[in-house]
Write a protein that binds this DNA or RNA. Sequence first.
DNA 1: TTCAATTATTGCAGCCAATGCAAACTTGCA
DNA 2: TGCAAGTTTGCATTGGCTGCAATAATTGAA
Lengths: 225, 225
Amino acid sequence: MSVTDDELGLRERKRLATRRAIQFASVELASERGFDRVTVDEISHAANVSPRTFFNYFRSKESAIIGDLPELPDGATIERFVDAGPEEPILAGIGELMVVAIDDTDFAGEESGAEADGRGAHRLHELRRALYKDNPQLFAMRISSMHKFEDELSAVLERRLARDDPELARNLEALKQRARLIMLVAFAAMRHAWTTWASLGGVGPLASLLRSSFAELQEVARTMS
Amino acid sequence: MSVTDDELGLRERKRLATRRAIQFASVELASERGFDRVTVDEISHAANVSPRTFFNYFRSKESAIIGDLPELPDGATIERFVDAGPEEPILAGIGELMVVAIDDTDFAGEESGAEADGRGAHRLHELRRALYKDNPQLFAMRISSMHKFEDELSAVLERRLARDDPELARNLEALKQRARLIMLVAFAAMRHAWTTWASLGGVGPLASLLRSSFAELQEVARTMS
DNA sequence: TTCAATTATTGCAGCCAATGCAAACTTGCA
DNA sequence: TGCAAGTTTGCATTGGCTGCAATAATTGAA
């Protein structure tokens, strides 16, 4: 059992287990047969729940496959980024935040080694990525379901920009707009890293490609200005 | 009748009319009642076609509302962009291509003044934009259905980059990757322009905001490098 | 341990999007 | 006019998704 599980009551633990069972069944079956050749009925059956219960846990077939969304790192990491100062390249900083966010999502709930779905979590994420690769619509859905993450990142960027450039901080609207622009550019880098990863056959760590994309972005910025 | 229509046979003209009728009915009804409170049956009825015919024209309810995708300008404009030379700021150039692409899409088939659905085309686009504004999922779908446009723009960028930087042109993979990165950044600017437009209440010309966003992007690039 | 409140699961009935198929109909062309 | 090609339609069917109400499990308190 992972650490998180122990502190929860039976009810919560069961909920979590069911949630995972459904995700696992969805991804597993979709990988075997292709996304639109699996029905919710089949998934539910494989996960030992009723089809109706499936929809108690997930809004749609897609969202069961897409998995949990990334989250920003904890407070200290954020503060370090915000306070890094105008000399530190902001893009690299954002890149690191994203690397952490993605890694944390990918291995959430898998800290210890031997729980029931221990290796499952690894496998789950591999299969998911393969699905994204073969099924670009799913990736698009994942991206477009990240509004919350986008907003969070924007808010952090606002703070950083306000520190770096007190002049900009005086115009709140301008500050917000700039933060949003940089956030969107960062997401562009993320998409870039991902397509690069996919075009390389979908093997190897995404994190290092993410760093490369941010580095290239930095370089492009230099070239273009 | 618009010029384009006259050169077509009856069959083609009817097809076009049906297509427009369906789009119009979809957007109109969705604006009145909200996207998911309209059924395909209702739309079809309003457009005087059978529900089955609706799906002969559009893959899904969404795609009837989303409308036609943008297309790159004609050859001469493209060539001018490709040949502009390394001194010309590339971002501004892309921005202009996008402005043209968006304007052309928005008023396609509406060149002359007095055809049956003349004012209709204007109204159609206004309603569509309002729908995008109130219904971000639709906008996300529009964006993610632009793969073709993305690829076209990438290809054009490849040519431009190859001209500007013969060294880069020698490494085809690197060239492709860089083109794609810049394309994605340009799309980020587009999204930025759009959210700005939406946050301003959804009035006024999108084109000028698009130019602003590209200009700000230019400035950000300078700041960051 | 028992009981009542809360919360989860399930089956059922039903809506709607979307697709395949084959029959009727329209248009283009000789 | 008549035939080939393309278009519209109805019908039947699959499958995603929701509301509702009954049943079952979990919890916390007595």
